[in-house]
Each structure stands twice: as structure tokens, then as C-alpha cells.
Design a protein around this nucleic acid. Structure first.
Length: 952
RNA sequence: GCAGGGGUGGCAGAGUCUGGCCAAAUGCGACGGGCUUAGGACCCGUUUCCUUUGUGGAUGCAAGAGUUCAAAUCUCUUCCCCUGCACCA
């Protein structure tokens, strides 16, 4: 099979026939949209997962008779392509090599210092890739999120959000580059590190006899009761400063350089060494205890404030520092103060060991001991700290008066509030994963911006609307529903305006740009009219127009005259929106649940009337390449065009889209590709031979084939409705090959049967593997498109448990006989012939009776009475045999099934299959009834489990 | 920490909702055999342990406990793994 040729041929044929272009019609509509691609790289095979899954649904619904619209657009707003252009201007080698991975020519790369050029280049590149992937897209409707006519739509959207009061203003911490003077996100930093900002409490310790404070940043303010002293670094530079205009504080100079982005810091006087602070005494803000200041070997001047509170009982580093000082003869009167204890050591399985009083004296020491062997000191202390923090936070209980018995998190919360509200502490943000380095080389700091605009997803009115919209929504797979629901509860403020980036200007502050996830929450509705609006002058696209089209507001005549747009055109837009937005399915990767999809629901709930709220959301997993996550750094990304070239589009599609259930990661690998390829060839091969096959009367195996086929259609239809594509492909692509093999091994195939079977199989494969399906469909002799054929329908009357069960019986007999034959040979005996003995009908009676109530005693009672025997149809002479049989049955009472076939049915079946059985087992087979058998093994016969007597 | 998902045979991965036909589909791998000059492809068999002129038995689906005539499947507890946690597409 020449996949390249097949792909090219059918893609062209579909395009020429325009079978994917859809407009308003009399048919039921179905509208499929996918999260549009961001235009900073060509597609790789991983992208096929989401786009392909949506394509499968679109293709399936088309076959079900719907008018299906599957449009596509492009995302170019935001900062990534700006950063991209800048990196290329700076000759970023890493980026260049990534681009080479995708075979982007050098002369193109040199032009990519212009964001607009980049966007255009990748728009074309991606569209090309989507054609190659065989996506059934209506390309007439494409647009880019930076298109001016789209901006008009976004402005309209934000006008409505603002009028409803969903946009508010406030403070917000961001990662910030002091050099470039701008907010930095993940793709602005080296190694793409997301700045991890955390809120921490900074506690003030008044300096005794001085109107000034030392201030310490801590994760664990509840341990303030256990502070024995403070630490500074004696070699670092410190300053005195005013914070936010009041109070004098000692902090390290480098800390002040970072903190000035979130609080107002005003240096007072000269700078000095940390050693000068050592003589001071401070007061614990809660206990009033007097605390000395020592040199802490581990204190880093740029972490927090450069001043650390010392809790030797609960912090291994503090304990170690005090220990060190003691060895030098200092800090001799410092004794650890316990704040909390772990009542029982939580050790699974070991009941829980009560820690002895001695251990309790200094918990930190215990953790240090656990790690001290081997490791370097700071590594050991780090590990000890981690474990102690974790265990104490998990199991610790406060022992301080007023907080006794509280869990640590509970106490932390309470104490933090008390400290802050009492003016004894302030809250500061820190960069938890510092140092984060900006691409320009400077360290990222936390800046608190105070004029940030937010979308207030926490607004109760809005949240309720969103929840209502969520209620009526189908989520696939069903189990991701909970995650989405949790996301709706959780989402709160979302910053909506940025200082830089491409996109639409923020209406409330034209200096800012609308953040790029926020400008793509309702764009799917825009596809319904984009092909029309793109022909109209941008200035005519007024809010009135959009109100009319999307919200049924206003009057056609006045909208037409105010915008100067022909009323027919406007009317057509509104009809198009009304038509397509009745039945929608929204697709994305699972990673968008917590942002895009949640915002999609909120914004639809805010803007549109209920009938246009989302109907279905589908989320899918990722794609692994040879068992690993695809990543630029590993270099295992398979560019789509390469994959298609090498393996063929449908091999890729079958694996990427359908080798895992929706929620899990699918896997692309060489071996798996080979497997799919083999199956395609097998099916094609059989299909091309149908012409040579005769079509006689239907045999048992033919009926079996029809039964299997119709059962398959039934389950496959249920599966594709829920997009359980792994199940679908297993049954349609893999099991069908097994069934065909079995069928073909049973004598001359019936051409009609094979044709019916393959036709249905090919049509059911078609949404996943459209090109190969099309090819086989035509090889069978059809001249229509498989892509537009009707999805196969089930003929329930052809599904037969009996026939399938009987075939299973034959398989079982073959397997069992072979086993026995092997055993005999092993024992040195050469088998000659095989007798199959069919169980008497009375045994069937007993089985059926016991399968119902499983009451052995009752059956025995009947066997022991004459009437009972007669009722069961058992001869007096067979009584002993019957009792023995029931005793045997009783052993596996749970496995007893009722049987519908009689001894005559079974006898007939086996007799007919005699030739096949003999052939498979390789010994002559005869069949006889139990009652007429002279075999000693006759009594072993059970219904649907004939006794196998092999003579040697 | 919070939220969501998961743990099945050498591996991948069904089965779990709806308990019994489950020593557990299917694919890959491994081993033995056939075919072949050879390799590949293909075909047959084996792939937890025991037992075997017979279609049997034991153990078993992260660990432990429970419910039930019956548990991979239901309940509880514990352990472990993955993903996300915001202004970033």
C-alpha cells in the first residue's frame, strides 16, 4: 500500500468535491470546534490527538446524516511570538535548532524577527499540516485572532462583560524582570521556568531599647512561640529602612533591592555589616521574650529579608547553627522551645509508636539524625527540614497555651491572622523557586502591580450562571466532569490586561492588551459568521451588529441602516449563528480544563442566551512518543509532515487518536505503527479478493460472521458516540482481523458475507482512518465516498448468542483435545482417534435448575423421590449417575450456566463440524450421544462440554 | 498542601460503573516447534505454581480489613505513582 499516494489522492478528491464545506440547510446541524493552534511552531504528531479526535466526531456525525461544520482558526495573540521574534533577533541557538527540527529553511528563519511574519508563516504551515492530517475542515471560515475584524468582536464581548460588572481592578503579584521592566511568564525565562510566587508572613521583632524592628520571613509563623533567637549573616550588608512610610526595619541590602518591587522601601542612613546587629536584643512579639541575635551560617542575604527567626526545636538548620555556636562557646544558654509535637509516629503497619519524652526534647535533632550519615551537611539538613515540615504539618499538634491540640495548618492560619491584624507582621510574596532567570540574564523578582484589571470569576452571580451552564453540559470522558466542576468552583480573579503582547486593546485602558486566553473564550461562535464578516469593512462591525446577530437584540432595519450593511447579509449571519450554535461540541487537551474550558463556560454563560450555551465538552490526553513525553529537549518530537511521509496519515491517526482511551495518553511507536500497517494490508488484501469468492448458501460459520458483525456495529456505535475510540479501534481494526482469519480458516469463504463484513468494517473505521477506508471502499467496487456514506446500522436479528456460543464450544473442544493429545504423547502413548460424547438432556435439566436457585439440597431431594425423577425426565436406572453428576456440579455451583441447546442440537453441531475438528486436532473425530456411548468416559460429559475420549 | 486521575501477568493495556461464563481480552516481548539455504514474514504451541489419560487444583489483580454463597470488580483504612495549581499559551 502506497500511503503517500492514497493520502494525496483522497485528500484531493474530498477537496474537489467540497464535501466538508457546510452551510445552513434543512438537515440537523452539528458544530465541532477545537482549541485553535498557537502559531509559533508547525504541527507535530501530538497535535493530531486533539484535532483528530474532533475530526473523528465530525466525520462520524456526517455519516449519521448531520450537517457538520468543523472550522479552524489560528491563535496569535499574547506574548509568545513577540518573545520568539526577540529570541531570533538575539540569535538564540536553542530556538534555531528547534526550528531546524521542523525543517524550516534558513532563509525563512532569518525573516522570523518580525512577529507578523512568524504568524503568517505558521498559519500557512499549520494549515498545510492539517490538510495532510486529513482533517475534514471547512477552510472558508478561517481567521487569525489578531485580525482586526475579530478584534471588533472581542471589544463587543468585553463591553458586555464590563456592563455586567464582571471586570474589576486591584493589586496583583507578578514575576518581574527589573532589567527589562516588564512582567515575565514562563516563556520569558531561561529553561522556561514559571516564576512560582508564594505568600509568606514576615514577623516583626522589636529591637530592645530602639525604635526599630528586625523582620523575618517565614513559612511557619506558628513556630514564633519557639523562637529562641534571630539569625543574620554577619558578612552580608544590611540597611535600616522605612517600609511603606512607617517604622524602621533592619533588612539585608539585597533583600531590599528585591522587596522594593512589592513594598515601599526607603533607606535610612548608611549601610553596614550584619556583624553590627549581633549585639542587639529583640522581643518576641507574642511572648515578649528577649532574644539575642547570632550569626547564622546558612542565612542567605537575598532570601526573604536576610533576617531569620530561629526555632531550633522545629527547624534543623536552626538547630545546627545553634549547635555550631555552642561548640564555639557561644549561645550556651539557648535551649530549644517546643511548639508542637507529634503524638504518635505515623508508621503504617506498626501501630504507631509513641515518641519517648527524651525524643520529644528536640524534634529537629531527631530528623537531623535520620539524614546525617553520608550526605553533605546542607543536603542532610535540607532533607531533614523537608521531612520535619511535612510530618509536623501532617500530624503535629500544638502544645502552646491557647492553641493546644490544634493541627499545625489550623494554628498557622489563626496565628497569621492575629499577627497581621495586630500589626505584628506583614505579608510579603517570595519567589519560591528562586533564582528564576529572565532570558536577558537578570534574576526575576516579585512585583506587586496595583492597577491590574481582573475578570472576576469569583463573582457569585456569574459563578452561578456558569454552574447552571455546566449542569446541562455533556462532558466526555465522563470522569473528567469532576475536574471541570472543581475548576469552576476554584477559579477566581483572572488578570485580563497585559502591558505587552499582540491582540485587542483593553477597552477600559487602551494602553493595555487583552490577555490572550481571555480573548479566546467565545471565538467559536465567530466561525458561524466569519466567512461573511471578513468581506465587510471593519468599521461597520459595531456592537449593535453583534447584539443583533448573537443576542437577538435590536431591529434589523435600524442595524442595517446604522452599519450600512445590507439587511440580507445581517439576516444571513443571524440565521447561521442560530443554526450552528444549537448543537456544539468543544474539544481540547486535558491541560486546558483549568483555564480555557472553564473560561469558555463562564463567558458563554455571561454573554449568550441559554439556548446557545455549550452542549458538549470533550477533553483528551496527550501523545507519548516511544514511551516518553514528546519534548523539545529530549528531541523526540515527530513533526507531522515527517510522520505522515514515513508511516502514512492513517497509521498515525489510528495510533495517536485511537490507541488509548480519551483520558489517557496515547502512544506512538515504530512497533505499533507496524502493527497497524499490517492490519490495513490484511483488510485491503481480503477486500481485493472478494471478486473471486463464490456466494453459496449460508453455513453456520457464515451466520456466526453476521452475528459478530452486527454485535460489532452495535458496540462500535455506542463507543463512538462516547468517543471511546480505543475500544472502537480494537474491535473494528484489530478484532475484525482475528474474526476474518477464523472465518477464512473454516473453508471456502462466502463472497457476499465477506463483502458485507468488510464494507461495514471499512465504514466504521472511516472516521479514524479515512484515507485507507476510502481506498478499500473503492477496492470493493464502490464509487461513492466512504466519508459520506451512511454509518452502518445494526440488524439485531442477526445477533445470536447461540451461534456464537456454539462456535466457542468448537474452539474449546479443539483446545482441550489438543491438550489431552499432548499429555498422552508426553506419557508415551500415540493417540489414534477421538470420540466426542454429548451429554444427555437430563443433565441440561439439572444445570438449568441449579443455575436458577443454586439449591443443591432441593435438587437432591427430588432425585431421591420417584416423582422428582420423572419430573426431571430421568430414568430410574440413571438415578445413581444423576446423583453423582449433581455432586460434581455442586463443587462449582457458582459457575453453572443455563443451557438452551438440546443434546440433539449439540450432536448436530459437532457432527457438522467434524471435518473441521478432525482437521484442527489432526486426528479423526467421531461424535456420539452419552446414552448410546460405550465409552467409560461417557459419564463425564456435561452440557456444552462433551466428554473427550481419545483412544490410543 | 489543595484538586483531579491512577496502581491488573515480562511490558503495554482491557476488565471495575452493572460482583459469578476471569488464571484475566488484545498487542508486544520471550521460549519451543513448523516453514526456509539463511534472515524476515507467516503458521502452531508455551509463557504464576502444582498436577495430569484427561478438560483438574492452589495461589492471584498495590497492602490490609470488611460485605457476600461468590470480589480484580462493592465498602473502609493505608501506601505508592501521575497531572494541574493561574495571569501562562
Amino acid at each position: 500500500m502506497d500511503y503517500k499516494e492514497i493520502d494525496r489522492k483522497w485528500q484531493k478528491a474530498w477537496q474537489d468535491a467540497k464535501i466538508f464545506e457546510s452551510d445552513v440547510s434543512g438537515k440537523e446541524p452539528y458544530f465541532v470546534t477545537v482549541a485553535f493552534p498557537y502559531v509559533n511552531a508547525p504541527l507535530h504528531i501530538g497535535h493530531v490527538r486533539t484535532y483528530g479526535t474532533a475530526d473523528v466526531l465530525a466525520r462520524y456525525k456526517r455519516m449519521k446524516g448531520y450537517s457538520v461544520l468543523f472550522p479552524m482558526g489560528f491563535h496569535a495573540t499574547g506574548t509568545p511570538i513577540l518573545a520568539f521574534a526577540k529570541r531570533l533577533r538575539n540569535n538564540d541557538k536553542e530556538l534555531v535548532s528547534e526550528l531546524k527540527l521542523f525543517h524550516i529553511p534558513d532563509q525563512e528563519i532569518t525573516k522570523m524577527t518580525d512577529p507578523v511574519y512568524i504568524a503568517n508563516y505558521f498559519v500557512n504551515e499549520i494549515e498545510f499540516g492539517m490538510h495532510k492530517a486529513g482533517l475534514s475542515i471547512d477552510w472558508r471560515r478561517k481567521f487569525v485572532s489578531t485580525d482586526p475584524f475579530f478584534s471588533k468582536f472581542i471589544e463587543w464581548q468585553f463591553g458586555i462583560l464590563n456592563s455586567k460588572g464582571y471586570i474589576i481592578r486591584g493589586k496583583h503579584p507578578v514575576g518581574w524582570c527589573p532589567n527589562e521592566n516588564q512582567a515575565v511568564g514562563m516563556h520569558d525565562t531561561k529553561h522556561d521556568t514559571e516564576p512560582d510566587i508564594e505568600k509568606e508572613t514576615s514577623i516583626k521583632f522589636k529591637v530592645d531599647g530602639e525604635d526599630a524592628y528586625l523582620i523575618c520571613t517565614t513559612y511557619r509563623p506558628e513556630t514564633v512561640f519557639g523562637v529562641t533567637n534571630l539569625f543574620v549573616n554577619q558578612d552580608s550588608v544590611y540597611i535600616k529602612c522605612k517600609i511603606n512610610g512607617n517604622g524602621i526595619y533592619y533588612i539585608s541590602k539585597s533583600a531590599s533591592a528585591e522587596l522594593k518591587y512589592q513594598i515601599n522601601i526607603e533607606q535610612v542612613g548608611e549601610e553596614f555589616r550584619g556583624s553590627e546587629i549581633l549585639s542587639k536584643r529583640c522581643l518576641n512579639p507574642l511572648t515578649g521574650a528577649q532574644l539575642p541575635v547570632f550569626n547564622g551560617f546558612f542565612v542567605k542575604e537575598d532570601m526573604g529579608t536576610g533576617v531569620v527567626m530561629s526555632v531550633p526545636a522545629h527547624a534543623p538548620f536552626d538547630y545546627a547553627a545553634i549547635d555550631k555556636l555552642k561548640k564555639e562557646g557561644k549561645a550556651l544558654d539557648i535551649n530549644p522551645i517546643l511548639v508542637l509535637e507529634i503524638p504518635k509516629k505515623p508508621k503504617p503497619g506498626s501501630e504507631g509508636v509513641v515518641i519517648s519524652q527524651e525524643d520529644l526534647d528536640v524534634p529537629a535533632l531527631r530528623y537531623i539524625e535520620m539524614f546525617k550519615s553520608g550526605a553533605a551537611e546542607d543536603v542532610a539538613l535540607e532533607s531533614a527540614t523537608k521531612l520535619q515540615y511535612k510530618e509536623e504539618s501532617h500530624y503535629g499538634k500544638m502544645i502552646v497555651d491557647g492553641y493546644k491540640g490544634m493541627s499545625e495548618p489550623e494554628a498557622r492560619d489563626k496565628i497569621t491572622k492575629e499577627l497581621v491584624s495586630g500589626g505584628k507582621a506583614i505579608e510579603l510574596y517570595i519567589l519560591a523557586n528562586a533564582p528564576v532567570v529572565c532570558r536577558c540574564g537578570y534574576n526575576v523578582v516579585v512585583k506587586v502591580v496595583d492597577d491590574q484589571w481582573f475578570l472576576n470569576y469569583g463573582n457569585p452571580e456569574w459563578k452561578n450562571l456558569a454552574k447552571e451552564a455546566f449542569t446541562g453540559l455533556t462532558v466526555l470522558p465522563e470522569k473528567s466532569r469532576k475536574a471541570l466542576s472543581a475548576a469552576i468552583d476554584w477559579i477566581d480573579l483572572r488578570a485580563v490586561a497585559r502591558a505587552q503582547g499582540l491582540g485587542t486593546r483593553f477597552p477600559l485602558d487602551k494602553e493595555k492588551i487583552i490577555e490572550s486566553l481571555s480573548d479566546s473564550t467565545i471565538y467559536m461562535s465567530f466561525y458561524t459568521v466569519s466567512n461573511v464578516l471578513k468581506e465587510i469593512e471593519t468599521k461597520r462591525l459595531t456592537p449593535d451588529l453583534f447584539d443583533y446577530i448573537f443576542l437577538h437584540k435590536g431591529d434589523l432595519g435600524s442595524v442595517s441602516s446604522s452599519t450600512g450593511i445590507d439587511f440580507q447579509v445581517i439576516k444571513r449571519c443571524r440565521e447561521s449563528f442560530d443554526y450552528w450554535y444549537r448543537a456544539t461540541s468543544r474539544h481540547s487537551g486535558a491541560d486546558l480544563i483549568f483555564n480555557h474550558l472553564t473560561m469558555y463556560i463562564f463567558n458563554h454563560a455571561a454573554i449568550f442566551p441559554k439556548e446557545n450555551w455549550p452542549k458538549q465538552i470533550v477533553v483528551n490526553g496527550n501523545v507519548l512518543s516511544e514511551g516518553e513525553k514528546m519534548s523539545k529537549s529530549i528531541g523526540n518530537i515527530v513533526p507531522l509532515v515527517d510522520g505522515v511521509e514515513k508511516y502514512g496519515t492513517d497509521v498515525i491517526r489510528a495510533l495517536v487518536i485511537a490507541s488509548a482511551d480519551l483520558f489517557s495518553d496515547s502512544e506512538f511507536s515504530e512497533v505499533a505503527a507496524k502493527g497497524v500497517d499490517e492490519r490495513f494490508r490484511y483488510l485491503y488484501d481480503i477486500a481485493s479478493k472478494i471478486g473471486e469468492m463464490e456466494s453459496g448458501e449460508l453455513r453456520h460459520i457464515d451466520y456466526w460472521m453476521y452475528s459478530k458483525l452486527n454485535r460489532k456495529i452495535k458496540t462500535a456505535t455506542a463507543q463512538i458516540e462516547k468517543l471511546e475510540l480505543r475500544g472502537l479501534s480494537t474491535s473494528v481494526l484489530y478484532d475484525s482481523v482475528l474474526e476474518l482469519r477464523k472465518y477464512l480458516s473454516r473453508g471456502e469463504p462466502n463472497g457476499l458475507v465477506v463483502r458485507d463484513y468488510i464494507s461495514s468494517i471499512v465504514l466504521m473505521m472511516s472516521p479514524i482512518t479515512p484515507h485507507v477506508s476510502e481506498e478499500i471502499w473503492h477496492a470493493i467496487g464502490n464509487d461513492t465516498f466512504a466519508s459520506t456514506e451512511k454509518w452502518p446500522s445494526v440488524d439485531e436479528s442477526m445477533i445470536s448468542d447461540k451461534i456464537e456460543g456454539e462456535e466457542d464450544l468448537l474452539e474449546g473442544i479443539i483446545a482441550d483435545s489438543k491438550q489431552v493429545v499432548a499429555l498422552m504423547r508426553k506419557g508415551g502413548k500415540e493417540p489414534k482417534s477421538i470420540r466426542l460424547i454429548v451429554a444427555d438432556d437430563w443433565k441440561r435439566q439439572l444445570n438449568n435448575g441449579l443455575s436458577k436457585d443454586r439449591n443443591v439440597g432441593a435438587v437432591m431431594d427430588r432425585l431421591n423421590s420417584d416423582e422428582g425423577l420423572t419430573a426431571l425426565g430421568i430414568d430410574q436406572s440413571s438415578k445413581d449417575k444423576a446423583i453423582k453428576y449433581v455432586q460434581q456440579l455442586a463443587k462449582r455451583i457458582n459457575a453453572i450456566r443455563s443451557v438452551s441447546s438440546t443434546q440433539d442440537d449439540e450432536y448436530k453441531l459437532l457432527n457438522e463440524a467434524k471435518a473441521y475438528l478432525s482437521d484442527s486436532i489432526k486426528y479423526p473425530v467421531t461424535v456420539e450421544l452419552e446414552s448410546k456411548s460405550a465409552s467409560q468416559r461417557a459419564a463425564n460429559a456435561a452440557p456444552l462440554r462433551p466428554s473427550i475420549d481419545i483412544s490410543s
